[in-house]
């Protein structure tokens, strides 16, 4: 059920997704990734270095954003390039609710060799949190 290059065009939208993130999510991601920077779990430390709150790992947001692509194509190996710029942090309050990362994506260019470029937009609290968020994907 792979997506065929022949069925997409510039402007084809990928199914949008929302990804919740709580303090517990960040602790779990810290453990799995090995990134124990205290700005991602220690509120006192985060405030001392001038952040508004504990913030999500940029790499966590990057991992969530590409799920819009990998869930669309099915085989994650179809992603041949993926890059983002971290433009704004995602503050994660300790209120039991946390934050939500909203991700949309659309086909921005048709490339050679049945590849397409997908441009992603990731926002949280109405702020764009990633810039230049692009994946090159090889379709069937």
């Amino acid at each position: 059920m792979a997506i065929s290059f022949d069925e997409v065009e510039v402007g084809t939208e990928l199914p949008a997704q929302s990804f919740p993130v709580t303090r517990a999510t960040l602790v779990q991601y810290a453990g799995a990734s090995g990134d124990f920077n205290p700005i991602h779990w220690n509120e006192k430390f985060a405030l001392e270095v001038g952040l508004p709150d504990v913030i999500a790992h940029g790499m966590f947001t990057m991992a969530e954003a590409v799920r819009v692509v990998t869930d669309w194509v099915g085989d994650p190996a179809a992603v041949v390039e993926y890059g983002v710029r971290f433009t704004k942090p995602v503050p994660v309050p300790n209120d039991g609710v946390g934050a939500v990362i909203e991700v949309t994506g659309k086909v921005a260019a048709l490339l050679e060799d049945r590849k397409v470029r997908v441009d992603l937009v990731a926002t949280s609290g109405g702020q764009k949190v990633l810039g230049m968020s692009r994946a090159v994907v090889r379709l069937a």
Partner: peptide
């Protein structure tokens, strides 16, 4: 230090 940007180019997963 803050993480400015990140890019991956894959030959295979």
């Amino acid at each position: 230090v803050v993480h400015g940007d990140q890019k991956f180019s894959y030959t295979r997963p």
